[in-house]
């Protein structure tokens, strides 16, 4: 179930960054990775950076970055799909429609997502 149209280009998406994905203060490109088809984010209309962080298995190990939805949609061919779950109404997947990219994005997309991300809750 997705509702891409509900998400405005000016909205933000919050995404957790694990401390092991920060090396010498820099987020590594591998931090931007889908799991089972989508890169799980929280939609800013229904969540906050703090709420996003609290969903982590080990909260203290995670920071949070945000993306502006328009910038994500500009990274072709990524899609932004609102995929609410029972526990998280804000859940939104960033997906690559290609069949081979359910667990890893192409290099260019990892670099573009890295460049587009901005710290909301910095690990440092």
């Amino acid at each position: 179930m997705s509702s891409d149209q509900e998400i405005s280009n000016s909205d933000k998406l919050y995404y957790r960054i694990h401390k092991n994905n920060v090396v010498n203060g820099e987020i590594v490109p591998a931090a931007f990775k889908p799991i089972n088809g989508g890169m799980s984010t929280d939609w800013s209309a229904l969540s906050t950076p703090e709420k996003c962080r609290l969903r982590a298995r080990n909260v203290e190990n995670n920071g949070v970055v945000s993306f502006v939805v328009a910038e994500v949609r500009a990274i072709k061919p990524l899609e932004v799909n609102h995929t609410p779950s029972e526990n998280n109404s804000s859940h939104t997947d960033i997906k690559h429609p290609g069949a081979n990219f359910s667990n890893s994005f192409p290099i260019q997309i990892r670099l573009d997502l890295r460049k587009s991300s901005n710290w909301e809750i910095n690990l440092s």
């Binding site: 490109p29 591998a30 990775k33 667990n103 890893s104 290099i107």
Partner: peptide, 23 residues
């Protein structure tokens, strides 16, 4: 920079500020 990559791979990254990037 030599970083861990996704799914057991390793990333090697050259970044020249605003000039270019190669991974």
């Amino acid at each position: 920079e030599i970083y861990h990559g996704p799914n057991g791979t390793i990333d090697v990254l050259w970044e020249a500020k605003t000039k270019f990037q190669l991974l």
